[in-house]
Design a protein around this nucleic acid. Structure first.
Length: 428
RNA sequence: GGUGGGGUGGCCGAGUGGCCGAAGGCGCUCCCCUGCUAAGGGAGUAACGGGUUUAUAGCCUGUUCGAGGGUUCGAAUCCCUCCUCCACCGCCA
């Protein structure tokens, strides 16, 4: 969530920034609620203060052995007034809280203004899409022909948007995840984590999946009711970032760099008909996630870095890709700035998202109460959090199958993966 | 699943209805003393929110002793529910 002060002291400016990402802030309403909140809170706290004072007096009178009964009687009215004020205040505070939960993060000034994905700006491209002198097949045809992708079984077992992989392709999928994890832990300074795949509602609030995006989650029970039910993670971002919940780091502990390879589960509500063919959009997919917890002054530096770490995977796999910066209108709810990496998908003759790297600023940290104490400082400050996919494993498999296909339907194995495949150079 | 015992400030640990936001210790900060990286003495040291303010300074004030609810003029202290940790037993991948 945003700093409440933005909504109190600088609401016009904040509204302007939010408008750039297509969010209409109801300035009128918020000002009105805030006005009421202020008077009501002062009123309530004054009554509270009176009650505290009077109660202490009663306590002292009792100690002196005086008769308390009349003093007590006086408290009746005060108590009623206080209860009434409290009740109204609590309701109002809840209303303001809910309203503020709905407000997305403010885009960084370097983010291009635009309405939707068509206005994202390409930063760079790497590699050249290979010229095939035969008709390319897509990964579905390739995978099925090789007996490695089994959509039929997946439908039987679970439904659409699931996959069964088999044999060398299952192994290649595993090799990709292993390779990524090794790269990030051995060369990029991340610590490997094994984390829960089911998380509680507090965690989902912490990373802002709740309360707005509950529909995207698979829940074991309603996750919005506190304390009951858990949800399957939509990304390892949730468990990894929630590691820092209620933490006060020593400045010297920053940055925290952690990574995990996990399955991710998404309901894909609202994407009916999109990418129905193949592995691009699944209810369950694997991802290697990168998370950094950093000093607030270093988060944009860290965004460049985390993106480079993700890019390195594509470079080492020799997969052509491009890097775009998302425009204000296409950014996720919690991001201040996001780079997407898009890998070349030959059968679609286009670049498709394979990684998304975001600087979330203090937006999650505020809900998480994730802080650090600067050396010598008395007050802790909010950290900044970042997350990036490094990479989505299922989509990487798609890219490898399609980019490395041969005319006879076999798949060449990228050089860096061959020893993960027992020295195998081809599948098929 | 059963029985028993816990969850208090950065950490350890007192506190069973009224100056307790919380003794004491450790750690940390500052000062003093001390002729040799030891020891001693003194002072300070929670977070979050609101109001006021140029102010993240001060002042006023509220909340917080695992979470939520209740009893009471008043709750860290009593009652209820939940979460969680530890020990032993049972079961088990």
């Amino acid at each position: 969530m945003l700093d409440p002060k933005f909504l109190r002291n600088d609401i016009e400016e904040t509204a302007k920034k939010l408008a750039s990402r297509g969010f209409v802030l109801d300035v009128e309403l918020i000002n009105q609620l805030e006005e009421r909140r202020k008077t009501l809170q002062v009123e309530t706290e004054t009554l509270q203060s009176q009650r505290n004072t009077r109660s202490k007096e009663i306590g002292m009178a009792a100690k002196r052995g005086e008769d308390i009964a009349p003093l007590r009687a006086e408290m009746g009215k005060l108590g009623e007034d206080l209860d009434a004020a409290k009740e109204e205040f609590t309701a109002l505070a809840e209303q303001i809280k809910q309203a503020s939960y709905a407000v997305p993060n403010v885009p960084h000034e370097s983010v291009p203004v635009g309405n939707d994905e068509d206005e994202n700006v390409e930063i760079s491209t790497w590699g050249t899409p290979k010229e095939f002198n035969f008709d390319v097949k897509d990964h579905v045809d390739l995978g099925e022909a090789l007996g490695g992708l089994d959509f039929k079984s997946a439908v039987k077992i679970s439904g659409s948007r699931f996959i069964v992989m088999q044999g060398q392709i299952a192994k290649l999928h595993r090799a990709l995840a292993q390779y990524m994890l090794n790269l990030h832990t051995n060369h990029h300074g991340y610590t490997e984590m094994y984390v829960p795949l089911l998380v509680n509602a507090d965690s989902l609030y912490g990373t802002t999946q709740l309360p707005k995006f509950g529909d995207d989650l698979f829940n074991t029970k309603p996750a919005t009711e506190e304390g009951i039910g858990m949800s399957l993670i939509p990304s390892a971002e949730v468990p990894l970032t929630n590691m820092s919940r209620d933490m006060i780091y020593d400045e010297s502990e920053l940055p925290v760099r952690i990574t995990a390879h996990t399955p991710c589960f998404r309901s894909e509500a609202g994407s009916y008909g999109r990418d129905t063919r193949g592995l691009i959009r699944q209810h369950q997919f694997d991802k290697v996630e990168l998370v950094q917890i950093v000093h607030p002054e270093k988060s944009f530096e860290a965004l460049e870095e985390i993106t480079k770490h993700a890019e390195q995977v594509l470079k080492n796999l020799e997969l052509p890709y491009r890097k775009v910066v998302l425009c204000t209108g296409d950014m996720g709810f919690s991001a201040t700035k996001t780079y997407d990496l898009e890998v070349w998908v030959p059968a679609q003759k286009t670049y498709r998202e394979i990684s998304s790297c975001s600087n979330v600023g203090d937006f999650q940290a505020r809900r998480l109460q994730a802080r650090f104490r600067a050396a010598g400082a008395k007050k802790p400050e909010l950290v900044h959090t970042l997350n990036g996919s490094g990479l989505a494993v299922g989509r990487t498999l798609v890219a490898v199958l399609e980019n490395y296909q041969l005319e006879d339907g076999r798949i060449e194995i990228p050089a860096v993966l061959q020893h993960y495949m027992g020295g195998l150079t081809h599948i098929g």
